[in-house]
Amino acid sequence: MFLSNTVSTDLSLVDATVIAVLGYAVVFFGLILLMLVVMAMGKAFTAAGRRNSVTPEKTVPAPAAVPAPAAVPAAASAAQSSQAAPGSAGKIKLHDVPPKTAAMLMAIVADQMGKPLNELRFISIKEVK
């Protein structure tokens, strides 16, 4: 019937409290264990990542410096004047994005990622309309 509660209590308040405390503890216990497992996995992957990044430097010889061209064709001389600076990752393609905005975006991304800008490579920036 309306506004009548026909259910009955089959659990004392003490029992319910014990179950509630135990349940909350089980949730914490489960997630703490999971946290430890995930942390261990993260550490293992970070260590493996470090090893992989160090190993090639020890074993692979540094590539030989690219010899300067003996003679540069006339058509390429203009391109050479705008050649990338040492350490540059090349040119970035901008699609409808002013260079100033692109520079700000790159700085924000580097800041958010916590990485120096020279360790990141931007391929292109396109405004999503």
Partner: peptide, 26 residues
């Protein structure tokens, strides 16, 4: 952040207690 996911389950067990107090079965 898994700990925060656990902490935020408090309402489940408090509401469970409240429901028992209001006469609901387990």
């Amino acid at each position: 952040s898994l700990l925060l996911g656990a902490a935020a389950q408090l309402g489940v067990f408090v509401a469970f207690l409240g429901a028992v107090c209001l006469g609901f079965t387990g």
